[in-house]
Every structure is written in structure tokens, then in C-alpha cells.
Computed example of a mutant assay.
Amino acid sequence: MLRQVRDDDLPAMLRWRNHPRVRKASFTTHEISEEEHARWWAGVRADPSRLVLIYEHGGTACGVVTFSGLDPERPVASWGFYLDLAGLERRGEMITAWFGIERTAIRHAFDVLELTTLRGEVLAGNQAVRLLHDRFGFKETGGYRRVVDGTTVDVVTVELTRPPTWRRV
């Protein structure tokens, strides 16, 4: 399930985002301060083209889904996610949560946001997420190089188009 972010979610979101493995798989890898996180959240709240939601797995908040590039005139947007790796590993729920967040985000994009195309970017070396996206039908559409912490890395772009036979679930 995806739900709106509440103010009391912000400390957990920051903790999850600052997990070393989440940082390593992100385009921003430094440890984010509370002040930087607060500025980011204020920017998201003020920007109608961005949406951040909490993912709940088994009734427990354990992930963040972001949508960007939202425009009522254009049914295409980008997305990303991260999970509470420490908590999910402790509960033995990592794999089911990975599949759950992907499935839930796609449904939200196509059913609630009424998008026809969902795009994303993933570090080329993040094979686990690339395989996950592939399993859900995302196609790798290209790539580019960008600098992350002073190192040039390869980025893969992915895209999922809503099938014509898509039915709201």
C-alpha cells in the first residue's frame, strides 16, 4: 500500500535513505543531514510535479516511492524508490518487499496517476534493481554517463508503457 507522507515519517525516511547500501545505489551518496532532508521535503511539498509516498508492507512503513515530472497535460513521469533495508532484513521480508514496492508503484502510476509511461534510471552496476525492473516488464531504453561523487558512472534508463489491456486492480 502507498500512502501520503506524514510529518512523523520524516525521521524514518532519512534513516532509510542514509543506509550505506541505499546511498551506494543512489545518485547522491553522501550522508544526508537533517537540515538537507528538511530542505528537500519543503521543496517536494511546494512542487506539484513531484510526489513522495510511503510504502507499507504487511502494515509496516518500510519504503519511499518518488514520482517526478508529473504534469496533468502529459501522462509520462519518472519514479524511484528506496526501502528500509535494515528493518526488512531483520524481519526476513526483503524479497517480498522489493517485489511489493515495484508492483504497488506501477499500479499507482497507471491506476491513480493515470500515466501511460513510467520511466526510471538506475546505476548500471545495480544489477539487482535492473533485474527487478526487467521482471516487471521495464525495457532498458538507453543510458548516459554522469558524475557521482567525483566518479563517472554509467546510468541505464528504463521505461514501462501501460499495456492496452491494462485493467485497474
Rank of each mutant, 00 (worst) to 15 (best):
W41K: 04
A42R: 15
G43D: 10
V44E: 08
R45G: 05
R45H: 13
A46I: 12
A46L: 10
D47S: 10
P48L: 00
P48W: 01
P48V: 00
S49R: 15
S49G: 13
R50Q: 12
R50M: 06
L51N: 04
L51G: 01
V52K: 14
V52M: 10
L53K: 06
I54W: 07
Y55I: 07
E56M: 12
G58Q: 03
G59W: 10
T60N: 09
T60F: 01
A61F: 01
A61H: 02
V64H: 03
V65A: 04
F67W: 08
G69C: 11
G69P: 07
G69K: 15
L70A: 04
D71N: 15
P72T: 05
P72K: 05
E73T: 15
R74V: 03
R74D: 02
V76Y: 03
V76L: 01
S78I: 02
S78W: 12
G80F: 00
F81A: 04
F81P: 00
Y82M: 01
Y82R: 04
Y82P: 01
L83G: 00
L83Q: 06
L85E: 11
A86N: 05
R90L: 05
R90E: 03
R91C: 08
G92Q: 07
I95M: 10
I95N: 11
I95K: 10
T96F: 06
W98H: 06
F99R: 15
I101D: 02
R103H: 14
R103L: 13
T104H: 08
T104V: 11
A105G: 05
I106A: 04
I106T: 05
R107F: 04
H108R: 11
H108P: 02
D111Q: 12
D111V: 02
V112R: 15
V112T: 15
T116S: 08
T117L: 02
R119Q: 15
R119F: 03
G120T: 08
G120F: 06
G120W: 01
E121K: 11
E121S: 08
L123Q: 10
L123E: 08
L123F: 09
A124P: 01
A128T: 13
A128M: 13
R130L: 14
L131R: 15
L131Y: 14
L131D: 14
H133G: 05
D134K: 07
D134T: 00
R135S: 13
F136A: 03
G137V: 09
F138W: 09
E140H: 13
E140D: 15
T141I: 14
T141Q: 14
G143Q: 05
Y144I: 09
Y144R: 15
Y144P: 00
Y144G: 04
R146V: 00
V147M: 13
V148D: 00
